[in-house]
Nucleic acid binder design. Sequence first.
DNA 1: AGCATTGTTTCACA
DNA 2: TTGTGAAACAATGC
Length: 259
Amino acid sequence: MPELPEVERARALIQSRGLRRRIVAVDDRDGYVCRPHGPGEIADALVGRELTAAHRRGKAMWCEASDDGPVLGLHLGMSGRIVIDGVEGGDPKPAAAGRGWDRFTLDFEDGGHLTMRDPRRLSRVRLEPNLDRLGPDAARIAAGPFRERVGRGTGPIKARIMDQAVIAGVGNLLADEGLWRARVDPRRAAGDLARDELDGLRRALRAAIRDAIAKGGVHTGKVIPARRRDGSCPRCGAAMRRATIGGRTTWWCSAEQQG
DNA sequence: AGCATTGTTTCACA
DNA sequence: TTGTGAAACAATGC
C-alpha cells in the first residue's frame, strides 16, 4: 500500500539489512516488472556487486552499488513490498508469501535474499531510473518552495498535491489525510489558497507523513477509517462526503472542509 | 457478477 | 500552456 511512508520504511529496511552483501544471482525474469530491460540484463549489471546506499524521493527508490555500475531503481507501484530475509518493509501487515508473488530477487552470497513481492505486478525495477520529472520530496520541501509550487493553477488542490512533478510522494490516501488535518476543501482551486492555508497544508502533510512512517503506513491515518459510506468525521462527527477528484475517490468532512 | 483499489503513463480533447 | 477525463496496465478482494 505504498505511498511515501511505506516507501521510506522499505528504504530504511534496505539500508539496515540490504547493504554490503555480495550479490551472487538475480532473478529478473518478470519481463513486465523489469521492462524495458530484457531477461538477464539487470542480472548482468548487478552480479558480483554490493548495494552501498538506499535513497528515496517521493515514491521512487534507488540503490547505489559498488564498482561504479548502474544504479538500481525500485518502485513499489500499487502493491509492491520489499522483503529481506523474510522481513518486510513498508507495511506491518505481513503479505501472504510463497504464492508466486516474488517478482524480482537478489540472492546474496551469505544465503539471504532481497525480494520485490507484488501481487499485482505494477511495481517496477529499472537500471538508471529517470527521476527528472519528480518534484521535491513532500516530507522535506521547505515552506517557500511549497507555497510557490503547490499554490498555483486552476485545478483542485487535491490534484495538485498528488501531481508527482509538483511535489513527490503524496498519493490518494495521504492527500485525503493531509487535507483533512489542514481543514482544506479538496475541491478548491490550488491558486486560490492563501499563504497561511498553504503553510498549514504543508505542516499537515508533514505531520501525516511522520505519523504514518512511525505507525506503519498511510492506512494508520486518522481520517482513513472514515473513508466509507456512512462514515463520519473523527473530529466533529459530521458526515463525510465523497466525490471523484483528480481521478481518484476522495472523502472529506462536510462541515470542516468547505470553501 | 460487478465494482473498487493505495500508482504511473499515455492519449484525446478542451 | 494548462488541465481533465478516461483508458490501460495486472491482479486481488469485497
